[in-house]
């Protein structure tokens, strides 16, 4: 029998190979995608400083209390200048260490072309196939990562904090629209109620194209915005992760979303859309890498010089490469 430490070490090594785009990962990753599908993959996203890591830690402990095993994938940006990164999310997850039912892995973004999104999807599949009941993916909600997390996760939790530029930020398109659950964390701070109200108002202003957008009215959740019995209502919940307050309600809501995904036609549609988006994304990556591989040494620089000298448009240069 394999000792648990050996299994975890093998898992950690496979995750490294995935991150590095190592060819040795291909077969085990393909096998993992076939064996996956049992875990609930939850994306936790939001601006820096909203307390995502602390919330993830509190959620993980709550799941552990139910007996579920938890894997955490924590993604932080790389420095665009040096390619280095400081990955410090474990600092806020120290209460989880020593528990063999928890596995934490930090990943650096490695720049826009580092393919971290593909790596993260493969990493989720591997963690799922390894047998974790819950896979939590923590990402910074900036740039394109918010749409990536929607493709990656079954359930997306958007984390906000009081006083984070309330009204304007809340109405911003993109990030609010992909959220299945919105959390105002640090709710022991002044202004938490106002932030929650502003977010609820923003949800009313920006209904989802799929029509499953709702907001909580005091004591009567799921009545606003949800137009049919099959609709998912996006609730704004309040938590104080440092005191584990509001965590059980959040856990319950995340569980409810999973049931919604599995039960109704809309849930099935949502899953199908995720899979389609993932194929499109992989296709784009693949074609992009193929095109780059056809470039001769220094050719990109030569084209760039012509574009800079206004002899050629960037679109024409791209077409020349693509039609090679």
């Amino acid at each position: 029998m394999t000792a648990p430490a050996d299994a975890r070490r093998a898992l950690a090594r496979l995750l490294t190979q995935i991150e590095n785009g190592d060819a040795r990962a291909q077969a085990p990753v393909a096998a993992a995608h076939r064996a996956a599908g049992r875990a609930h993959v939850i994306g936790i996203t939001g601006a820096p400083g909203t307390g995502k890591s602390t919330l993830v830690s509190a959620l993980a402990r709550a799941w552990r209390a139910t007996g579920a095993t938890v894997a955490i994938l924590s993604i932080d940006p790389s420095s665009p200048l040096t390619g280095g990164a400081i990955l410090g999310d474990r600092i806020r997850m120290r209460e989880l260490s020593g528990d063999e039912g928890v596995f934490i892995r930090s990943m650096a973004g490695r720049g826009a072309q580092g393919g971290i999104a593909a790596a993260a999807a493969d990493a989720c599949a591997v963690l799922d196939a390894h047998g974790f009941d819950i896979v939590l993916v923590e990402t910074i909600g900036a740039g394109q990562s918010e749409t990536e997390v929607a493709r990656l996760a079954h359930t997306v939790v958007l984390v906000e904090a009081p006083g984070m530029g309330d009204d304007v930020q809340a109405i911003k398109a993109g990030i609010v629209e992909i959220a299945d659950i919105i959390v105002v964390n640090k709710s022991d701070r002044p202004g938490a109620e106002q932030t929650a109200s502003a977010l609820r108002a923003a949800l009313d202003l920006a209904p989802r194209s799929q029509g499953h957008h709702g907001a909580e009215i005091a004591g009567k959740p799921e009545t606003r915005g949800a137009t049919g019995p099959d609709d998912w209502a996006v609730l704004v919940l309040q938590t104080t992760a440092t005191q584990s307050e509001g965590i059980s309600a959040l856990l319950e809501r995340i569980g409810a979303h999973r049931i919604w995904l599995a039960a109704g036609a809309q849930g099935a549609q949502r899953q199908a859309r995720r899979s389609r988006d993932e194929i499109v994304f992989r296709l784009r990556e693949l074609l992009f890498r193929r095109a780059l591989a056809r470039l001769a040494e220094g050719e990109l620089e030569a084209l760039a010089a012509r574009v800079a000298a206004c002899e050629l448009s960037a679109a024409e240069a791209a077409q020349m490469i693509a039609e090679r």
Binding site: G83, L87, R94, S106
Partner: peptide
């Protein structure tokens, strides 16, 4: 210097450090 640094913070036991090193490979 271009490295990815996993910073685990204060007051770590040897067990915590070794397990973090394993998980983070």
């Amino acid at each position: 210097a271009g490295m990815e640094v996993i910073y685990t913070g204060l007051r770590q036991t040897p067990e915590m450090i070794a397990e973090a090193a394993l998980q983070e490979d």
